[in-house]
């Protein structure tokens, strides 16, 4: 019963709630996005073909891009009310993003990259925390390797490690599986879902990868 109660409790708080969002690059390229809600520990899939503004939406949800209209609430924080350094710090601390291509600081090894992740977000740096996360993602043996020495799959895992490092409220993933084979695809998805669940974070995946449709029920289609 307590588990059930906890679940219901989470259900009532929407970890992320985006409403009435629109964004225009110019007069001819204008996106009006559907409203998006996702509770903690849950996953939400945003699917659409290329050019429908998937990455644009992801960046708006991640506080990287300001929408022309609409609001993005993460927990009880309104992103549109944050600016400049405050927004940078909030993003670093509360939003973890997994990019399609995992970009790391090439001069630093994985451990140092993750230390930097903590430092940039203003979180206390802890080597043991990092090693724990790396261990749970089964890449702890690559902690002292430079990013260029890691395989694509390992980089994707390191990327997940970076996204969850600061125990964010929201994990955003941009095409995390498009470069992977079926087996890895499912593995990475479970990795993201499990981690999000453990952290109590909401997981929003933006993709055109049809394989994920069968694995996540909550879907929003962009057109």
């Amino acid at each position: 019963m307590p588990v059930f109660t906890e679940q219901r409790c989470y259900d009532r708080i929407k970890m992320i709630k985006a409403s009435n969002i629109s964004f225009a690059y110019n007069e001819s390229t204008r996106f009006d996005f559907p409203d998006i809600e996702c509770p903690p520990k849950a996953s939400c899939l945003i699917i659409g073909k290329s050019g429908v503004g998937k990455t644009t939406l992801l960046h708006i949800l991640g506080g990287v891009l300001k929408p022309d209209q609409g609001s993005v609430l993460i927990g009880d924080a309104d992103l549109s009310k944050l600016d400049g350094t405050k927004l940078d710090k909030y993003r670093g601390k509360n939003i973890g993003i997994v990019f399609q291509k995992p970009h790391f600081i090439s001069s630093l090894n994985i451990l140092e990259n993750l230390l930097l992740t903590q430092n940039l977000a203003g979180v206390r740096m802890s080597k043991s925390d990092i090693l724990m996360v790396l261990k749970s993602l089964e890449i702890e043996d690559r902690a002292y390797s430079k990013p260029s020495k890691l395989s694509q799959g390992e980089l994707q895992r390191a990327s997940v490690a970076r996204a969850v490092m600061n125990q964010p409220k929201l994990i955003l993933a941009d095409e995390p599986t498009s470069a992977l084979d079926d087996e890895s695809c499912e593995q990475v998805l479970h990795l993201l879902q499990n981690t999000a669940r453990e952290m109590g974070a909401a997981l929003v995946i933006v993709t055109h990868d049809g394989r994920l449709k069968e694995l996540i029920d909550h879907q929003i289609v962009l057109s």
């Binding site: 670093g92 990019f99 970009h103 600081i105 940039l120």
Partner: peptide, 13 residues
């Protein structure tokens, strides 16, 4: 890309 990622991770200008 590294600089952009640093910004995403909370690094201010």
């Amino acid at each position: 890309y590294e600089l952009a990622v640093m910004r995403v991770l909370g690094g201010g200008r």
